[in-house]
Nucleic acid binder design. Structure first.
Lengths: 167, 167
DNA sequence: AGCATATAGTTATAATAGGTAACTATTTTA
DNA sequence: TAAAATAGTTACCTATTATAACTATATGCT
């Protein structure tokens, strides 16, 4: 582990040789967490750009898509599906309701739970947004071929879908 | 665009057929941002578990690794390398300094900037942590073969390393 | 039936992450 | 020397993630 230890100490003021402003090729690039975060930052920035005019955040978009696919989905189910906490779902659905995109309907069978539905406005919006999101992903991954893009998605799914220890 | 529109409206109370608590196989799984977030959540949770006893957060670990590789690196250089904002670097280095892991040294040539160095304690810790991080990544990606792990890293790097639009 | 327990949603906190604006101290440049 | 740029810092704001505690309802037990 003493491979490239430079052992530069502050006392010898080794600041004379300056590093480039961005330092590359480091051990960090072998870290999965680092790579995931950097890639996610980039993809999310593109997403934000694409959604700016509609003022939609990633979590809002995901919610809209799930509700569209599963009208009447409950908040707890939505929380589990998106891996977000129940308290955040409350805020999320509140904002969608306030904007007239979705609405809660109290469930007859179990009056504790609420089914969530899209309004007509919400349905129209999500159709538009899905196209924008698709485009945004393509732009963010311009450096990948279509095959590589699919590989990446498959590998990521394989990572998050495995539930070995009660994830 | 009208492929699988279910057009369930709240009025008809379609809550009778309940969905499973976690809903799978949805359009969302084709979204790169969704897959990245889910995978990152999982990898970071493993990382947190591995680092718990040392009370080290991901950004602190990354900083330690960069400082180890580039002793005397400046705060601005660190910020760019890790894609974090200058204000956060301040807090980050403050906490590392308070814990006796790193220290700032005012640069002689440019007295505005500070070089950051690891203390002996910091050097010893980061050696230990690198092993833990490696192990944590392996655990989080147990569902991948060694080849797939390398593919994933390569693809992620390809995504974040491309700077087409001034990223 | 009554009572304990569990669940759905909500509210309230807190810590972390991410970004912006403004300020100080320096250095560079023109 | 004056103006502009840079390194770091402080202050602020929002979003994300995670708790804990509370209300209302439902379920299970005896």
């Amino acid at each position: 582990m003493t491979t490239s230890k430079k052992s530069a100490s502050p006392e010898q003021a080794s600041l004379e040789e300056a590093y480039p402003s961005t330092v590359e090729g480091l051990v960090l690039e072998e870290r999965l967490g680092y790579a995931l975060r950097r890639a996610q930052l980039k993809v999310f920035r593109h997403f934000d750009d694409a959604m700016r005019e509609h003022d939609i955040r990633p979590a809002q978009f995901s919610s809209l898509v799930v509700i569209e696919g599963y009208p009447g989905v409950t908040q707890s189910s939505l929380a589990q599906t998106l891996s977000i906490d129940p308290p955040r779902v409350v805020n999320l659905i509140n904002s969608l309701e306030e904007r007239g995109l979705a609405l809660r309907v109290r469930c007859k069978r179990d009056r504790r739970s609420h089914g969530i539905f899209l309004t007509k406005t919400g349905e129209a919006l999500v159709e538009r947004l899905k196209g924008l999101a698709e485009q945004s992903d393509l732009e963010a991954t311009q450096s990948l071929s279509e095959i590589e893009r699919r590989q990446l998605l498959t590998l990521l799914r394989k990572v998050y879908a495995s539930e070995e220890h009660g994830d």
